[in-house]
């Protein structure tokens, strides 16, 4: 598993994909942060993280599109499947490689909050009253962990779709559609009058689970929800490979 993890990490940075992903991610994060906090003169980072989730629609497929489809097209999966590693190990190796790069860029993007910290320190010094000024630590932490979990779930969806297709582009397009559907389900929700449809969409919606993190709660139900999505799609990817063996 570690061999595959290392190979995938390396592959991200010997092809343009890793650089393109990192570049777009950091640029998007910086822009979104500037527009949602500094320009609005606000310490509220909720909308920053929420808009970041929307940027995942484009960014996550970049990470996952080639993971399995390329192996399949180049027939290199034959090497992996005849090597003494389990299919689960292989899938997890790839999942964690994508997740590691994703978390690395997430951590790097935290630097965008640095100006806010600087402002708050300066304002606190000059403030006369004890009014609350500055970042809400719990909110930032909650949103950050929430974003990591959402990212993990999307990556799992992405590798599942990548394992179905031999063509990177197909995989990417379908992944964009799938992630967009998961994101937008909650938004369409507000326009639908029928209760049971709303309940279903609300259940699917990734965004609606994110709200508690935005309030600074740590929502264990949401944690479980995102981890389950990751688990289910990793499991399905393993099944795709098992099925192909028996096909």
């Amino acid at each position: 598993m570690f061999a595959i993890f290392k190979k995938e990490m390396r592959a991200y940075f010997t092809s343009p994909v890793g650089y393109v992903y990192t570049g777009i991610f950091l640029a998007a994060a910086a822009l979104i942060c500037a527009f949602t906090t500094i320009q609005r003169a606000s310490y509220d980072t909720t909308s920053y993280f929420q808009y970041m989730l929307f940027s995942f629609i484009i960014l996550i497929p970049l990470l996952t599109m080639r993971l399995f489809s390329e192996e399949r097209r180049n027939r290199t999966e034959q090497l992996l499947l005849t090597s003494p590693i389990t299919i689960t190990g292989m899938v997890l190796g790839k999942f964690f490689a994508a997740f590691a790069l994703f978390s690395a860029t997430m951590f790097a993007s935290l630097i965008n909050l640095f100006p806010l910290v600087v402002y708050s320190i300066r304002e606190q010094k000059s403030a006369t009253s004890g009014a609350h000024i500055g970042l809400a630590g719990a909110q930032v932490m909650g949103c950050f962990i929430g974003s990591l979990l959402v990212g993990a779930a999307f990556i799992a969806v992405g590798i599942f779709i990548s394992s179905l297709s031999e063509n990177q582009l197909t995989a990417a397009v379908i992944t964009v559609a799938a992630i967009a559907a998961m994101m937008l389900a909650g938004i369409f929700n507000t326009y639908i009058g029928v209760t049971w449809i709303r309940t279903v969409l609300d259940w699917i919606s990734v965004l609606s689970r994110f709200d508690y993190f935005a309030y600074g709660y740590f929502d264990y139900a949401a944690l479980l929800y995102y981890l389950s999505i990751s688990g289910v799609f990793i499991f399905l990817t393993v099944r795709v490979y098992e099925k192909r063996r028996w096909g």
Binding site: K7, A11, N74, R75, T76, Q78, L79
Partner: peptide, 14 residues
């Protein structure tokens, strides 16, 4: 078992 499939499973970018 060591296996060389019909099409060698090589990563061209390595």
């Amino acid at each position: 078992v060591g296996y060389l499939p019909e099409q060698p499973p090589l990563y061209l970018d390595m």
